[in-house]
């Protein structure tokens, strides 16, 4: 039982990081595809499918770890496993056909990242195996696996939190994690703008660290009081750091209006395409908004609940 959960957690973490790397390339290319006359979008499809597969692995393993009931677990297994199996098989076949038609210069033509298209092939084959395993093995053994922190939210909170804003927040965080992981190759070698760019580097990675600490340390703690104090310290600390870095970055970029366009275009691709200051705003939102919502919506309510229990 613990082994199954451990495997799911590893899968979740690895898929999160790889999804971030893929989204870093995929997202701006999707935007460009929508607004340009790019003549060859067909050969880009395996890359987008690979991104979808990795996201599916992440969301499926995350959902399996936190299903509220046996029914929802089985639905997750069928849907997730089915999606991985069908998309994985489709992408594998599509890659083979493209390769035979001369659609790739070689296995490492590196059109997106250094390993494309061989990375897409590997992920597709892995997804086929994983999809089949989730459906067959998971369906048989699903009832035996204990529930880890099943969600107790109301339906509306689940829809808004787990199915809408939560995934949006996670995907934006993934993108910036992917951008952060590319720093060794993309960071401006000229340090003249470091005073402006440094706070944004921190803002890129803070949400992921916060989510990681919550998912892997705080969430499973059975001691409610300890969990509450960890969360209170953690959320307020990250919120404080987010506010400090956001203010630092904002005023520094006002003082030097060229710094972001000189040194940060590798991380804010849409900003330059749309001539708008979207990247820093997004970073501020994902660093401040979830923490604020969590603080107001949950932690204060939890404090009341704990106080009531103590007094009872």
């Amino acid at each position: 039982m613990k082994k199954a959960n451990l495997i799911l957690k590893i899968m979740e973490g690895v898929a999160f990081a790889l999804s971030g790397l893929c989204l870093y390339y995929a997202f701006p290319d999707i935007v460009e595809l929508l607004f340009s006359t790019t003549p060859d979008p067909v050969s880009m499809i395996p890359y987008f499918l690979m991104t979808i597969l990795l996201l599916t692995i992440f969301f499926t393993s995350h959902a399996l770890l936190h299903n509220a009931s046996k029914t929802s677990r089985k639905v997750t297994l069928c849907l997730g496993g089915g999606l991985l199996l069908t998309l994985g098989a489709a992408n594998t076949i599509y890659l083979m056909v493209l390769a035979f038609q001369g659609g790739f210069a070689n296995l490492w033509e590196s059109r997106f990242n250094l390993l494309y298209p061989v990375d897409s092939l590997i992920v597709s084959l892995l997804s086929d195996f994983l999809g089949a395993a989730l459906i067959l093995y998971g369906w048989k053994k699903a009832d035996a696996v204990e529930f880890v922190c099943p969600s107790k939210k109301t339906m509306w909170k689940r829809i808004l939190g787990d199915y809408l804003f939560g995934p949006l927040f996670l995907m934006i965080s993934m993108f910036f994690l992917g951008a952060f992981l590319h720093l060794p190759w993309t960071i401006d070698r000229d340090p003249k703008n470091l005073g402006v760019t440094l706070p944004f580097y921190f803002l890129m990675v803070l949400p992921v660290v916060e989510v990681g600490l919550y998912e892997y340390l705080a969430r499973e703690n059975k001691d409610e009081k300890k969990t509450y104090s960890y969360m209170m310290i953690g959320v307020t600390s990250f919120l404080g750091a987010g506010i400090v870095f956001s203010i630092w970055g904002y005023f520094a970029s006002i003082n030097n209006p060229y710094a972001l366009t000189e040194s940060m275009t590798a991380y804010f691709p849409i900003d330059s395409m749309g001539s708008m200051n979207l990247g820093p705003v997004l970073l501020t939102f994902i660093n401040l908004l979830p923490g604020l919502i969590y603080l107001l919506n949950y932690l204060f309510a939890k404090k009341k609940e704990l106080t009531k229990k103590e007094n009872a």
Binding site: T186, T261, A266, P269
Partner: peptide, 12 residues
């Protein structure tokens, strides 16, 4: 141009 510095590479 204005787009040549956008991408997964360092500015130089």
């Amino acid at each position: 141009g204005n787009h040549d510095r956008q991408g997964s590479f360092h500015p130089d």
